[in-house]
Design a protein around this nucleic acid. Structure first.
Lengths: 205, 205
DNA sequence: GGTAAATCCGACCATTTGGTCTTTTTATAT
DNA sequence: ATATAAAAAGACCAAATGGTCGGATTTACC
């Protein structure tokens, strides 16, 4: 195999399995040996490619988490349509993968935020950056929606974004416990309700 | 000191400090020695009172977390007033303590839910029980509110509860990162907006 | 085929962890 | 005061963890 290809392959195998296990068991409860065992690799291989466990994790955040968040939660809400419709569709899709016990990266993000909060500033900075990017894009989308007449003129777009993000992070916590499918259904029905309350009101004659 | 009093005192000191550190650093990243060092106690003292770290933690959940959740998030919404008003006030109070960097037990709960999800079934059962109690009480409060004419007849109380809990858990995740005060303000403004959309509509003449 | 660099192996290390066990201290009852 | 049981001390242990290091393989290139 091509050398740089091999390097990439090993690094990516490590990162993919790393994210998988970190998500399933938590960062502090996942040892490097756990990851290596699953891949039939050795300590030497790991420390040849990564400086430390923390460096490894940060690269996972940058290379996997950030991109996935972008493609599942940010990119889908870009465009000139009604942002409320786009966000609804986007959440519906993301939660559907969550119902089927797959990795929902929104959940991955909020789990890590909870796990590292107050424990590791360096990691927190990287995680918060993703949150900020999401937030900025949400605000932009809502403002554009307001400009295009989809949202009520009085809507505070920053506040709406905070609320939308909150509810999404939160429902992922709830879905982990029981009856994720019904939780999803209930959540979606009420976020629609909320969206209805901030959409542009028909003009009175 | 009286003996049974002394026993209680030591156990409670351990549990209080335990919760404090578990919340600050996470369960898996907090060693028993950490707790003992902070209290100038020894391993012997700890294992005289508790069977294991897990047993210790479960007792913390039952003795501290559950009760605190009850007094801060459940009790305040009981009564015959408009439940939407009560919940608003309740969240406002809880988030205010959170802004001042104190322990907000709603956050403690959601952090632990995230940390133990998929890792420790026994602990998860205890945590989920608290969530269920909260949920049941929320649903009851909303249904009573509907019966008393505070909520619109068409509101799905289960769904509304799920949504309300979601948003609360979620905003706590967001508040950890930056500008908690402004996050709180934005969150409160939008949950009021949502509540307005499910309150009883004035009758048309 | 030989060579040098890239990649990987795995024994090893220091430290930390949850937990055990024997011993000592402390409080209570007689 | 002394016997007794509760409470606490702290040395100790086995397992696990993140990380190191010298050497063995692979790979690319001549």
């Amino acid at each position: 195999m091509n050398k740089s290809l091999k390097r990439m392959a090993t690094m990516q195998r490590l990162q993919n399995t790393g994210l998988e296990l970190f998500y399933a068991q938590g960062y502090y409860d996942t040892s490097i040996d756990d990851i290596l065992k699953k891949l039939d690799l050795s300590k030497g291989a790991f420390y040849y490619h990564f400086e430390s466990k923390e460096d490894f994790f940060i690269q996972i955040i940058e290379n996997l988490l950030a991109r996935k968040i972008y493609s599942t939660l940010i990119e889908p809400i870009e465009g000139h349509d009604n942002p409320l419709t786009l966000i609804t569709k986007c959440f519906d899709d993301a939660l559907e993968t969550a119902v089927h016990n797959e990795m929902d990266y929104g959940c991955v993000l909020s789990n890590f935020l909870a796990e590292f909060n107050g424990k590791n500033d360096v990691v927190m900075r990287h995680l918060n950056e993703i949150v900020t990017v999401w937030e900025v894009n949400l605000v932009t989308a809502l403002q554009k929606g307001k400009f295009n007449g989809y949202l009520d003129r009085h809507v505070d777009c920053e506040a709406a974004s905070t609320f939308i993000m909150s509810s999404y992070f939160g429902v992922r916590v709830l879905m982990t416990s029981a009856a994720p499918s019904s939780k999803k259904y209930r959540f979606m029905s009420q976020i629609r309700q909320y969206f209805k309350s901030i959409e542009a009101k028909p003009v009175n004659f």
